[in-house]
């Protein structure tokens, strides 16, 4: 696929167009919208965490509409089975009356999948998502099915209702490129939300892009140059989250049980490349790395008991590490 200067220069414009269109239906949460779009362009999956009613589902639905992509929603419950997610082989009869097993695709076969309240399903069902999220394929029986591109899973979970839930295992958490925390809207945003959602007016969302365009944008982002010093900085940041690393800061040794995986390093660089383009730049800067550190690392660093008892949040920890890390 040929990429010319015009495509690269038009990246920011296309991105803003999508973002503005989504902004018509989602009031506030601009950073969340931006980060979700970055995740899509990085071909990653996002875990959204927030209390009910903050528009998590609405955001995913809106993205699906604006991007002109297939969208499906899976409501995770304790009795949800893997076959309910990926699909199953069923007995069917052809025109000649011959009986055969045919594969009935599950809701995962879509461009955008909303895994609502993912932590309510059993680990077995949660694990059914793993292959799809990482490999973009689904294996049922002896057959492996490729998912259509772009493929993007957006899972949500409620941080306050932990009873009867199955916290996501670390392996699955690591497959989410970002973990985004939805904050409660402020007064103006809340007023606007109420005005839009309680009236008779419906949103007039337009499809501003396509799957192909998204793939093209994704390819542009992959080619953005990054200086050695910047990439070294990102790697130092990842390494400094490991308590067993001698050069790690004191806060890591004190509060961290496990540091980020190499996927964290990949995610931070991927995200920073997209962020640079959004900023109208054609190279990655330290600030891009710093910006991406929060969504990338907050679910990849495992705090120990001391940190939890002292109310240290992952974001507090990440800020401290960034502040103390030399360029």
């Amino acid at each position: 696929m040929d990429i010319n200067e015009k495509d690269i220069e038009g990246f920011k414009e296309s991105f803003l167009e999508i973002k503005n269109e989504i902004g018509k239906a989602i009031i506030g949460q601009e950073d969340i919208i931006e980060q979700v779009l970055i995740a899509i362009l990085c071909e990653g999956n996002v875990l959204l965490e927030g209390v009910p009613g903050l528009g998590k589902t609405q955001l995913v639905k809106t993205i699906g509409r604006v991007l002109d992509l297939d969208f499906s929603r899976i409501q995770f419950t304790p009795d949800l089975m893997p076959a309910d997610v990926v699909g199953t082989n069923i007995v069917s009869h052809d025109e000649n009356g011959k009986t055969e097993l045919s594969f009935q695709k599950g809701p995962i076969f879509s461009n955008i999948v909303l895994a609502d309240e993912i932590n309510r399903a059993t680990p077995k069902t949660q694990s059914a998502m793993l292959e799809a999220m990482q490999e973009k394929t689904v294996t049922v029986g002896n057959n492996t099915y490729s998912l259509t591109k772009p493929f993007f899973v957006m899972a949500t979970q409620n941080p306050i209702e932990m009873e009867g839930t199955y916290p996501l295992p670390e392996a699955q958490m690591d497959r989410f490129i970002f973990k985004l925390n939805l904050e409660f809207p402020n007064l103006n945003e809340l007023t606007k939300i109420v005005e839009i959602t309680t009236g008779i007016d419906t949103d007039n969302l337009e499809k501003v892009t396509s799957g192909e365009k998204l793939i093209s944008m994704s390819n542009i982002a992959k080619n953005i140059p990054i200086a050695t010093s910047v990439i070294n900085y990102a790697m130092k940041l990842i390494l400094s989250t490991h308590p067993e690393n001698e050069s790690s800061p004191e806060i890591t040794k004190k509060y961290i049980r496990y540091g980020s995986s190499p996927r964290g390093a990949q995610a931070i660089v991927k995200g920073a490349r997209v962020k640079a383009l959004i900023e109208g730049r054609y190279n990655v800067s330290y600030d891009d790395i710093k910006y991406m550190a929060y969504p990338v690392l907050r679910h990849r660093v495992v705090l120990n008991f001391d940190a939890i008892s002292e109310n240290i949040t992952p974001d507090d920890y990440i800020k401290e590490v960034i502040d103390n890390l030399e360029l």
Binding site: P225, I226, A227, S229, E279, R281, N283, V284, S285, D287
Partner: peptide, 8 residues
């Protein structure tokens, strides 16, 4: 200059 020169 946000690492523009060093990248160049």
């Amino acid at each position: 200059l946000k690492e523009r020169v060093v990248t160049s």
